[in-house]
């Protein structure tokens, strides 16, 4: 299997006026292609910080982060944007859809930034929307559909550029438990079709959808186990 991600002694220190906060204190792990990994931890454990670094939204203070063989710390802002665009598909707790854009336009956005010509975009967008079970909702706006549907749009948006990793941050946090499980089943299906998924959550029940769980506490890995 291909190694898709390697993290070595990752540290993130925030300098807040006079106090230094060590959010991450030396984290190392690797993820292979096609894995479904849950990162679990209570709030304040540093898992959000870790997710931001994995998602190329933030730089680590120390340590190495290789994504598809590339040292992310050496990338500039533009290259980092390119990585976010091509290699990572984000799914957020608050959906983070653009409220004024239609579902279609929301899903289209990563393609626009990737420079896909407009003629080719339509098919790709519709395919992504259909793959998460959304039909006849293409031209609605986010405020016209349910929470579960919004999260499906967000997943379609994460998929649309064929990323190396799908990075989901508490994707069920704003949903009732039934809808939450429906959404998790989509992730399962995506995993079965070969996608690499990293799921950040504090709920054990949700974390167990993954095949491997990394427990984080106080900026360190507490436990890294494969789920039976």
């Amino acid at each position: 299997m291909n190694r898709i991600m390697r993290i070595e002694q990752l540290k993130k220190i925030y300098q807040l006026s006079k106090v230094k906060v060590e959010a991450l204190r030396g984290i190392s792990f690797t993820i292979e292609e096609g894995e479904f990994v849950s990162i679990m931890g209570p709030s304040g454990s540093g898992k959000s910080t870790l997710m931001h670094i994995i998602g190329c939204l933030d730089y680590p203070t120390e340590g190495k982060y290789y994504l598809t063989g590339q040292d992310v710390a050496k990338l500039n802002d533009n290259q980092l944007a390119l990585f976010r665009n091509k290699k990572i598909g984000f799914v957020f707790q608050q959906f983070n859809l653009l409220p004024r854009a239609t579902n279609f336009n929301n899903v289209e956005l990563p393609l626009i930034y990737a420079g896909v010509p407009s003629g080719k975009r339509k098919d790709i967008v519709l395919k992504a929307l259909h793959s998460v079970g959304l039909k006849n909702r293409e031209y609605h706006r986010p405020n016209e559909i349910s929470g579960g549907e919004r999260q499906r749009v967000a997943i379609a948006r994460a998929l649309v550029n064929n990323p190396s990793i799908i990075l989901a941050d508490e994707p069920t946090g704003n949903l009732d438990s039934k809808t939450g499980h429906d959404i998790m089943k989509i992730f399962q299906k995506l995993h079965q079709s070969g996608n690499t998924i990293i799921l950040v959550t504090h709920e054990r029940e949700i974390a167990t959808y993954g095949k491997r769980i990394i427990y984080i506490r106080d900026g360190l890995i507490e436990k890294d186990e494969v789920v039976a």
Partner: peptide, 15 residues
């Protein structure tokens, strides 16, 4: 927030 979303989806500064 919109700017944040766009950046997360791959918008470069110049976009």
């Amino acid at each position: 927030r919109e700017i944040g979303i766009r950046k997360a989806l791959g918008a470069k500064n110049r976009n």
